[in-house]
């Protein structure tokens, strides 16, 4: 009896979950199908649930804009931040975990304190700094602050602590210098952390609309996110073209995600458990 009732309860819950899941998929579905609807169809009521006469006109109109450049800019910024963050964080995290250097406690405390701060606090000054080093309105204006953000250091430090000190001592006795020790011994051990940090940084840079909005101006230097936002400003309710842009921005990452979901999941989990 009890078991049966429990099963029924579980079945109902699963059903509810499936319905909610469909609601979660819907916006994505609406982007993809909307990209193939001409404007007249996009705003018609009742709506067309599936584009019966799919058209590429929206993409033709989209690519009158430098949409490909926007997309590549996003890729470049995300990849560059990812690589730089991984490298600088791993180096810093390693010594913070394993070296008793003078001032270590202070450095670490400042990093922890800065982690909690919202990036936007530094907004106006950052604009001036970027200008003074000639990087305003370039991809670097988005990349460099992302690299400065110390979350990665914290993550890497937590991981590097699991590296056994004995191995490091052994390496030193064998005459390996610090850099070789870091490359040959520490790096392989903390490899999973690299994966986690890489995924985390890539996605957060890709989605960092705020910083991109403030730092980038030239139409050709926009990211795909900014480009789509600009299209929305210019075309208002011309939803077909806007969805075509949104699809271009979303599809590649979604595809990568679906292919490597397992790594995403373990990356996210690792980032959290150690963070």
């Amino acid at each position: 009896m009890l078991k049966q009732r429990l099963n029924l309860y579980r079945a109902i819950m699963m059903l509810v979950l499936i319905i909610i899941s469909l609601l979660f998929i819907f916006p994505f579905y609406w982007i993809i199908t909307g990209a193939f609807k001409i404007q007249k169809v996009a705003i018609q009521m009742p709506p067309q649930w599936f584009p019966t006469e799919p058209t590429f006109a929206n993409f033709t109109e989209l690519f009158l804009n430098p949409a490909l450049a926007w997309f590549l800019n996003s890729v470049f910024m995300s990849l560059a931040s990812m690589l730089l963050v991984c490298l600088t964080s791993a180096m810093a995290g390693y010594v913070l975990a394993k070296k008793q250097f003078s001032g270590r406690a202070i450095v670490f405390a400042v990093i922890i304190a800065a982690m909690a701060l919202p990036k936007q606090v530094v907004l106006v000054p950052l604009v001036r700094i970027m200008n003074s080093i000639g990087m305003y309105n370039t991809a670097w204006a988005v990349i460099l602050p992302a690299v400065g953000w110390p979350f990665g250091v914290f993550l890497m430090k937590q991981f590097a602590q699991t590296v056994p000190t004995e191995i490091l001592d052994a390496a030193r006795i064998d005459g390996s210098n610090e850099w070789m020790t870091f490359v040959r011994i520490v790096t392989p051990i903390i490899k999973p952390a690299y994966g986690a940090l890489a995924i985390f940084t890539f996605i957060s840079t890709w989605n960092d609309y705020f910083l991109q909005l403030v730092m980038l101006q030239s139409r050709s230097k926009l990211t795909i996110a900014l480009g789509v936002a600009t299209l929305q400003a210019e075309m208002a309710t011309n939803y077909g073209v806007i969805m075509a842009g949104a699809a271009l921005g979303a599809l590649p990452i979604v595809t990568i995600f679906l292919l490597f979901q397992k790594y995403f999941a373990s990356g996210i989990t690792m980032g959290a458990v150690k963070g």
């Binding site: 001036r128 970027m130 305003y136 309105n137 101006q217 210019e234």
Partner: peptide, 21 residues
């Protein structure tokens, strides 16, 4: 040449003026 729109263009101008660009 740079084209800007009326929605975010004004803010971009402010940022550029403040940034000295």
């Amino acid at each position: 040449l740079e084209t800007i729109d009326f929605t975010s263009g004004p803010q971009k101008l402010t940022a550029a003026i403040e940034g000295g660009t």
